[in-house]
Amino acid sequence: MSDGPVLSLRGVSKNFGGVRALIDVDLDIHQHEVLAVVGDNAAGKSTLAGVIAGVYRPDAGRVLLDGAPVVLDSPAVARGLGIAAVFQELALCDNLDVVENLFLGHEPTRGGFLDEIEMERRAWDLLGQLATNVPSVRLPVRALSGGQRQVVAVARALLGSPRVVVLDEPTAALGVRQTAEVLNLVERLRERGHAVVLISHQAADLQAVADRFAVLRLGRIDGELDAASVGYEDLLAAMTGVSRPSGRKPR
């Protein structure tokens, strides 16, 4: 990418008690790029997402935004700096409709009353940009499929026009068709110029959209792979540590 990374981690470590969840992690995140962070269970993926999204504060190391160090104290601070995260549990209210969920807690008002028209207009706008198949913005969220709900959660993250979007296991609970919907969405995000960090252990799904892979293993970044040249076996090998990715030994 041309302008250097939007967000960089340098030597980031995070411990939970005696467990070393992240050890000396370096990572660069660019605009117009989908960075897939893969790893087995307990590799530190969710901790990494938490550090980027401001949920966890690293014990050591620095987080750089456009090259300047920043402290991400809370998700709100991270959001203010243009980093939005969608976590595995989507945090949508089933009984509210799409518009209501999108703007929940940040509703625009007009003379003290909710400005439904402004909200609905922006909701159509946003969902239109994501080219989604959410049938109506006035449908309660419980009537949507898993993939559509994911779209709503992502759309909500996009409301503040963040530069970095972190998706933690967006396809973990989804079927094949819905997974495809979400991957489709990730591509749209890249087209819109966001830097997307996609965290998952489902390497096959990620191959459909990722530009670059960072492999986490036991808390360390265990190699970065270019999506164009990497095969599924290489990824599995890197995740499990059976062989070096460059070795490319079919088992």
Binding site: R177, N184, Q207, D211, A228
Partner: peptide
């Protein structure tokens, strides 16, 4: 870099 994907997955994305 154009992403590589299993062809079936790609097709499904396109259909959707």
């Amino acid at each position: 870099t154009p992403a590589t994907a299993p062809p079936s997955q790609r097709a499904l994305v396109a259909v959707l």
